[in-house]
Simulated assay, not measured.
Amino acid sequence: MVSPSVKDVAALARVSIGTVSNVLNRPEIVSPDTVERVTLAMEKLSYVRNEAARQLRVGHSNALGLITLSGSNPFFTELTTAAEDSAASAGYSVIAGNSNEKKDRESGYLNLFEELRVRGVLISPVGNVVPRLRRMRQRGIPAVLVDRVSNDLSFSSVSVDDVAGGALAVTHLIESGRRRIAVVGGPTEIRQVSDRLQGARQAAAAHPGVTLEVIVVNGLTVQEGRRAGEAIVERAPSARPDGIFAANDLLAIGLLQALNMQGEIAIPDEIALVGYDDILFASASVVPLTSIRQPSRLIGETAVQILLEEAEDPDLEPRQILYQPELVVRASSASAPPA
């Protein structure tokens, strides 16, 4: 069976082929009555647009590529939803991929987006992808970094000041009376983790008598948090930290499960706990979790806006949008430690 063509649609709608093309590509210049007539003809014929042919003609698709670090982290889920909503309002769709903190998967998605000729790429990278993004930009595919800043500022970015966030978390623990503080996070080559650790170290160094232990884990997951917590439970009480800053809320929830539910360590009386991201589960956990809040929806919306502006005007200067984090105090750190 031969698929219906633009010519068939034009004949049924009693318009020119050029009018059908305008309805498909520039509907704003066609009268609403004509758009409706052409749309009805397409539906009646079950016409499917030849997207590959359109891409060859205009040089790009009506899709944006998005690569996040984790598909299981609600922070990235909310960011992706906001990006999809913002893109849809501008007439674009979003093809989302999860690198799972793996460089080879990240590279695979970038290859796919190049093959699909996406209009642009939003990426929260695992490693240094700037050279690859620079080559893609030369081929007409701009990119905006999400939740990350490029070292040479050659690409626009929308992120949160993670150094300030790490300092905010540890300062809060210190001000609540904690002196033996552990930071749980990893892999440390992830920029967000290293920045949060840097801020934690700065805060600890500014307060005499405070020690800072770094516990490196293999991923930002509940399971890794639980493993770190189980190792802390095995220590003698005097060797345990009295305050923990987890590099994200998923780690913090895993720690909470191991410390409080399995190890019967009182939170926050024995160990105070602070997470990062302020995901929905933070306030709903068994012990409501103190966390550093990031404006995930605002990050996604702003990143799409900048990307589309740069797609229309490649000569725009890169912009770095840096939002400030916010401390949200809940029961996991609210009370003071015992004297």
Score class of each variant (00 low, 15 high):
residue 4 P to W: 02
residue 21 S to K: 13
residue 25 N to W: 02
residue 259 L to I: 07
residue 9 V to Y: 13
residue 285 S to P: 00
residue 35 V to Y: 06
residue 239 A to R: 14
residue 38 V to S: 04
residue 294 Q to S: 02
residue 3 S to L: 15
residue 119 R to W: 02
residue 310 E to G: 05
residue 208 P to D: 15
residue 90 A to G: 03
residue 41 A to G: 06
residue 54 R to L: 11
residue 170 V to L: 10
residue 246 A to G: 08
residue 202 Q to Y: 12
residue 79 L to N: 05
residue 199 G to Y: 07
residue 126 V to E: 08
residue 142 P to E: 12
residue 83 A to M: 03
residue 316 L to Y: 11
residue 16 S to W: 14
residue 216 V to C: 08
residue 327 L to A: 07
residue 235 R to Y: 09
residue 269 D to I: 02
residue 175 E to V: 02
residue 154 S to V: 08
residue 175 E to M: 03
residue 36 E to T: 10
residue 191 R to G: 14
residue 206 A to E: 13
residue 189 E to I: 09
residue 256 L to S: 07
residue 71 G to D: 07
residue 212 L to M: 15
residue 306 I to S: 00
residue 114 E to H: 15
residue 232 I to E: 11
residue 224 E to I: 08
residue 105 R to H: 10
residue 121 V to R: 00
residue 289 L to Q: 04
residue 96 A to W: 05
residue 177 G to E: 07
residue 241 P to E: 09
residue 42 M to A: 04
residue 60 H to F: 13
residue 230 E to M: 09
residue 157 S to P: 04
residue 140 G to F: 13
residue 188 T to F: 09
residue 217 V to W: 03
residue 33 D to L: 09
residue 301 E to W: 00
residue 313 D to S: 12
residue 185 G to I: 12
residue 2 V to S: 14
residue 272 A to K: 04
residue 242 D to L: 06
residue 303 A to H: 00
residue 275 G to P: 01
residue 135 R to K: 15
residue 87 A to R: 01
residue 110 L to I: 15
residue 38 V to T: 10
residue 215 I to S: 11
residue 33 D to T: 10
residue 315 D to N: 15
